[in-house]
């Protein structure tokens, strides 16, 4: 359904939006099938309601949120972000969401918390077996998780998030490759140690913890210098940090991004 009036956000891109059709039919959501057309056809495999998202680990106030409770943590905002997939294509997506920082604040992280792990829903009875080590998980450093660009998305094009895009709630980190945006989240866990993510386990030489969009660091099997914006014919140059360098580069100052890829 319609999510009602949305606050605007200065981080939103002014670029032309990718069509809703493309955003909802071209998905990497392996739990619902490994072909990009699969997730839109297998939406019945995931019931986004009722839903609870638990926040736990190194926090003073661990708790579970229903989706309604999540929607009330902060005013819903429209965030038009570029999304760059590690495979070399990109979109401009009008997400609806809340800053992840607002949720973290509710849980009151402890001083020892350094990382945040995100765990996706997995149902062995209905979802893909094999391919990756399920459930899907991702991770961010705590400062990345608290960054104002990082959101929990609950909607798309002003409406409830479609299943194939990670309903009912997913992570969106626009300066990182798309796979960092874990879908259909059930657990957010604060930890002291860097989490080992699903893609790091699957291909340690190909997928690192940071996975910042970086045209200068190639994937071992393909170049990351350019990308095809879905709906366009030619390719465009990929921007450092997906064009969000001004906001995020300082978090990585002094780090060798070739090593911490």
């Amino acid at each position: 359904g319609n999510l009602g009036p949305l606050a605007r956000n200065p981080f939103s891109s002014q670029e032309e939006l990718t069509s809703r059709k493309a955003i909802t039919t071209y998905n990497n959501f392996y739990e619902l099938g490994t072909d990009k057309a699969d997730p839109a056809q297998n939406t019945h495999r995931l019931k986004p309601s009722p839903w609870t998202l638990r926040i736990e680990g190194l926090v003073n106030k661990p708790r579970s949120f229903s989706l309604d409770e999540l929607l009330k943590i902060a005013p819903l905002e429209e965030r038009i972000y570029r999304m760059r997939c590690v495979e070399g294509w990109s979109m401009v997506i009008p997400w609806v969401g809340i800053p992840l920082a607002a949720l973290l604040k509710q849980a009151d992280p402890q001083g020892s918390a350094k990382y945040v792990e995100f765990i996706s829903h997995y149902d062995k009875a209905t979802m893909t077996h094999g391919v990756l080590d399920w459930p899907y998980n991702e991770g961010l450093r705590l400062d990345e998780a608290r960054h104002p660009l990082t959101i929990l998305a609950v909607g798309l094009y002003g409406e409830t998030l479609p299943v194939q895009n990670g309903a009912p709630v997913r992570l969106v980190v626009p300066w990182k490759y798309g796979f960092k945006g874990a879908k259909s989240l059930v657990t957010i866990r604060l930890t002291e140690k860097q989490p080992l993510t699903a893609w790091m386990k699957a291909g340690p030489s190909e997928y690192g913890f940071y996975s910042n969009v970086n045209p200068e660091v190639d994937h071992p099997r393909w170049s990351q210098a350019t990308e095809r914006r879905i709906g366009e014919f030619g390719k465009r140059k990929t921007l450092m940090f997906n064009g969000y360098g001004e906001q995020v580069a300082s978090m990585y100052s002094g780090m060798d991004l070739r090593r911490f890829f």
């Binding site: 069509s19 059709k21 493309a22 039919t25 071209y26 990009k36 057309a37 294509w89 095809r228 879905i230 709906g231 014919f233």
Partner: peptide
């Protein structure tokens, strides 16, 4: 024909 009718999905070149 599918290319002409825009039936190759969001990324027809791929």
């Amino acid at each position: 024909r599918d290319l002409q009718l825009d039936r190759l999905g969001a990324n027809p070149i791929e």
